[in-house]
Design a binder for these strands. Structure first.
Lengths: 102, 102
DNA sequence: CGTGTAAGGAATTCTGACACG
DNA sequence: CGTGTAAGGAATTCTGACACG
């Protein structure tokens, strides 16, 4: 399940280079709950490649004039829809399974 | 061709955690030409996930009592064999192709 | 040879704040 | 709201060297 993509290993400086975003922006998006780095024991932020993709996506939306709370709302909706689809899929599978059984 | 696995983004501290090797060892293996990190403009080392795998492989060989120069020699042999196989494969493909043509 | 360590300095990162708009 | 910046401090990393074996 977890792979290199999810490993939190990238410092904010490298992150800044990878995304083209200033460190200030990256920290701010964290403050606005758009991204969640890990921390070293000393407090230094660590990001994953998935976070790189997230930030690029966020950057694009910001350029389109979207506000951070809107982006956050969109993310939440996506999550909810995903859960919903999964629950429905499981429901259908269970139904089909029970039909065969009984 | 290149993916997350080859991106040099990991600092030596994280590298040390990921591999369980001391920073001293990691720097020494570089000195012995077993690993080649990139550098930031400021001189800080940056490693890739492929480097993580390399280091784990090196660590295993060191535990088996192998010396750094032997490990290095093994790597070179592997490279040469790989090139040889590829050349031979290309040769056979070319031969087959020419047979059809002429 | 391979690795630990103390040393001094430089690069990197952190937080909270002020500024502007 | 979103972002730049200067400030002071702390965490991280760097190199060259000495030590031991």
């Amino acid at each position: 399940m977890s792979s290199y993509k999810d490993k939190k290993v990238i410092t904010i400086g490298v992150m800044s280079e990878l995304t083209g975003l200033s460190e200030r922006k990256i920290r701010y998006y964290e403050e606005r709950k758009l991204i969640y780095p890990d921390r070293t024991s000393g407090g230094t932020r660590k990001y994953s490649f998935l976070d790189v993709e997230r930030l690029l996506d966020i950057a694009e939306k910001m350029e389109d004039g979207m506000q951070t709370f809107e982006i956050r709302r969109m993310e939440q909706k996506k999550m909810k829809n995903k859960e919903l689809r999964e629950r429905m899929l499981r429901g259908q599978l269970n139904a089909a399974f029970n039909m065969r059984k009984g």
